[in-house]
Structure formats: C-alpha cells, structure tokens
Amino acid sequence: MAKIGIYGSSFDPVTNVHLWTASTVAHRCKLDRVIFLPCSSKRKDKSLNTTDEHRIAMLEMALKNNEKFILDDYEMNQDSWNVYTYHTMQHFHSLFPGDEVSFIMGADLLEDIAEGKWKYSDELIANNKFIVMARNGIDMLKTISRSPLLRNYDDGTRFHLIDKGLAMEISSTYIREELAKGGEPRYLLPDACYDYVKNHGLYQ
C-alpha cells in the first residue's frame, strides 16, 4: 500500500516554499508520492494572475527533479467551475484503490471547513484523511475541538497535524507583489521558473 498526499493550490506561481513544504510533509508523513494539483481557473472563488498553460509549464520545471513529486491537471480539465474537493478526493481514491490517500492543507483551510465554508464538508471529513500544516496564529487542536464536525471524526488518524517548522509566510502573492513593484524575488522560486517568469513578462 502506497501513501499518497494530494497537494492542491493555485501555484500562481509555484514557489520554493511549496516545494520545501511538500518535501517536508513527504518526509515526516512517510509519503511515497505527493501529487501537485493546480486548481481550475474556472473556479469563481479564485482570481488567478496567469494562464493555465503558464502555471503548468512552471510546475513541470519545478517538479522534474524529484521522483516523488507528480503533477496532475485533473481539476484544470474539469468542464465546470463547480469543482469541489470532496469530488476530487473521490477521483483519487478511485484512481488509487487500496492506497492511503490524504489531502494536504494549511490550518487556515481547516478553520474554513470547521466554519462550514466548504461544500460537502461532512462527506469530505467522513471519507478522507488530512495532513494539516501549521499557520501562524491558528491553534489546530482548538479548531478541531471546537467543531462538532471535526471532533466527531477525530479518531486519532483522521488529522495528521504538523505544527513544527512549517509556518512559513512567503507566498505566491508575495512573489507576485514583488514582481509587480519591481522587487527581486529570485531565490523564492526555482531558478527555471524565475527565468520563465522573466522571459514571459509574467506578473508585471
């Protein structure tokens, strides 16, 4: 049985923090693979800053030297903007029957689920395991204990909380803002991706 983590994000652009986070999670949780899942540009809750083609190209460059990292454009290829994590996880469970598939997310998203902001949240929590990464200012244990939904499924294996050394705040947003204002974020994203951004005039 393989252990697989599904790492969804906009990756707009992919950053060195994304890669470092995925590598650390894979090491600590003994994952065999981390699937990088760029979100659909059709989603109404996302405002993306470049095209799917650019995001895919940068991810391909960033992931090519790590055999544990896999790019999957499943959500990008859905016809509808109405793409929900519950259905995405159903897809990956059917794709990897018999394997342990977990959803990787930040503690901020755990709070959103606890507050009922996600569609099919009951079904999502009931049928999946989660690797939850620390975010500054969020107490993950309190988030779970205060939510009837989360605490009633907390059997000791549902949520793998990683609360040490992962609360880094350098984000894709930070990099885009630096580029837009003439800053220099060169060492915050892979060299090939930095060159790609510059060559294509992205985020200017």
Rank of each mutant, 00 (worst) to 15 (best):
M1Q: 06
G5S: 08
G5K: 06
Y7K: 06
Y7C: 11
G8W: 00
G8H: 01
S10A: 15
F11V: 06
D12R: 11
V17C: 11
W20P: 00
W20Q: 13
A22W: 01
A22P: 04
S23V: 03
T24A: 12
C29E: 15
C29F: 06
K30E: 13
K30Y: 10
K30S: 14
L31A: 12
I35L: 09
I35S: 04
F36W: 05
F36N: 12
L37N: 05
S41Y: 03
S41D: 12
K42E: 08
K42T: 07
R43V: 03
R43Q: 15
K44V: 14
D45S: 06
S47E: 09
D52Y: 00
D52I: 11
H54R: 02
R55Q: 10
I56K: 14
M58I: 09
L59K: 01
L59R: 02
L59A: 08
E60S: 13
M61L: 15
A62F: 04
A62E: 08
A62C: 12
A62V: 11
K64N: 09
K64F: 04
N65W: 03
N66L: 05
E67T: 12
L71A: 04
L71W: 02
E75C: 05
E75S: 06
Q78L: 13
W81A: 15
W81F: 11
Y84Q: 09
T88W: 03
M89A: 11
Q90K: 14
Q90E: 14
D99Y: 11
E100T: 13
S102Q: 10
S102T: 09
G106N: 05
D108Q: 10
D108P: 01
L109Y: 04
L110R: 03
L110F: 07
L110W: 03
D112W: 05
I113F: 12
I113W: 11
A114M: 03
K119M: 10
S121K: 13
N136T: 15
G137Q: 09
K142D: 15
T143G: 04
T143A: 10
R146F: 02
S147A: 09
L149E: 05
L150P: 01
R151S: 15
R151Q: 08
N152E: 15
Y153N: 14
D155R: 10
G156E: 04
G156R: 04
T157M: 08
L161N: 07
I162A: 11
D163S: 14
D163C: 10
K164A: 13
G165V: 12
G165K: 08
G165N: 14
L166W: 02
L166C: 08
A167H: 08
M168E: 13
E169V: 07
I170D: 01
I170A: 08
S171H: 05
S171F: 03
T173Q: 08
R176F: 05
G182Q: 06
E184H: 12
P185G: 03
L188C: 10
P190V: 09
D191A: 13
Y194E: 00
Y194M: 02
Y194L: 01
Y194A: 01
H200I: 02
H200R: 03
G201F: 08
Y203T: 01
